[in-house]
């Protein structure tokens, strides 16, 4: 649902945070439009959590400004906090309360009373799959259920901006799919910021991604834009029965191919890695080339550049 001209939900300008000598966030600039699911990526210790803490008004920036739906976090923190639903890293939660007591408490803080409170809590129980655990003490629940209670807390007031810091930690694959669908559903109307270092998660869920490393922005764009930046590009793995030099020469002559490497030879079979510069689909050309030469073909596989590669390139060294 992200439209390119929707108004900004979050604007971060020249954001800096120093802890003593440690420069945790440096000159960060980015904007998020309303209705986007925004992935915030970076290796551990890159400054993701610090940035989110500043966005949620937990700690003040050293310099720079943050505006949420037009409200500045420094001067209008209460309005900002009313708009935000936040699930911090590691899901801090009051372990001695039951799920229902906790959500009632959160609802009260969010200014919900009476019937509205009861119906919203019942709704959240259904959405997050907590109905059966309503009376259980949070500390005695499994990590997955605690995570759901934390998520219910963040979604209590149907926030305009939902910030989730590593929301999938401790969840099993089924729960991950459930929560992912939940996030996508939220993202149809609301803005979601999703911090993670799990790339497959982010690329499956987010409309736009920002990668930070060492407190600095290193890349941003849609998942497709980012993967196209990969130095290794698109690849085809071809396994044919022929001579090494013949194969190399033949594949190199296909238009669009930027390089060919023979990766393995066994008996007369050899595996070639054919790299394409653009996002061009040359599967058919490769197949025709093999057929023309009369070689036997046992494998032809397309490998798209992955976000992992881009991430590693950008955040290492």
């Amino acid at each position: 649902m992200s439209s390119t001209n929707a108004p900004f939900m979050l604007e971060v300008n020249n954001l800096n945070k120093k802890f003593g000598d440690v420069h945790a966030v440096r000159n960060l600039n980015f904007q998020i439009r309303k209705g986007e699911i925004f992935g915030f990526l970076g290796p551990n210790g890159a400054g993701k959590t610090t940035t989110m803490r500043m966005v949620t008004c937990f700690i003040p920036p050293t310099s720079g400004s943050i505006r949420i739906d037009g409200h500045d976090t420094a001067t209008d923190s209460l309005s900002v906090r009313r708009k935000i639903g936040y699930l911090p890293e590691n899901n801090p939660i009051y372990n001695d309360m039951t799920v229902e007591e906790y959500l009632k408490f959160v609802a009260e803080i969010r200014g919900m009373k009476g019937d509205r409170q009861t119906s919203r809590i019942r709704e959240l129980f259904a959405i997050c799959g907590l109905t059966k655990t309503a009376d259980r003490q949070i500390g005695k629940l499994s990590k997955g259920y605690r995570q759901r209670a934390g998520l219910a807390q963040a979604m209590m007031h149907d926030p305009d901006l939902l910030i989730l810091d590593e929301p999938m930690s401790g969840l099993d694959p089924n729960q991950i799919i459930e929560i992912r669908n939940l996030i996508k559903k939220m993202g149809q109307e609301k803005t979601v910021i999703y911090c993670s270092h799990i790339l497959s998660e982010v690329s499956a869920t987010c409309d736009r991604i920002l990668i930070i490393n060492d407190g600095q922005l290193v890349a941003s764009g849609t998942p497709e834009e980012l993967t196209s930046r990969s130095a290794r590009g698109n690849r085809y793995i071809v396994r044919v029965k022929t001579d090494r030099n013949d194969a190399e020469a033949a594949f190199r002559s296909i238009p669009g191919v930027s390089s060919v490497a023979i990766t393995a030879v066994a008996d007369q079979w050899l595996s070639a890695e054919v790299v394409v510069a653009d996002r061009e689909d040359i599967g058919e050309s490769i197949f025709k080339c093999v057929v023309d030469k009369g070689w036997s073909l046992s494998e032809l596989k397309h490998e798209a550049a992955s976000l992992e590669e881009v991430f590693t390139q950008l955040t290492r060294g």
């Binding site: 937990f58 209460l78 936040y86 590691n90 939660i93």
Partner: peptide, 14 residues
Amino acid sequence: KVHTLELLLTWPVS
């Protein structure tokens, strides 16, 4: 210690 302070101080309460 359990970091609920981070949660609490990001709620709309003074």
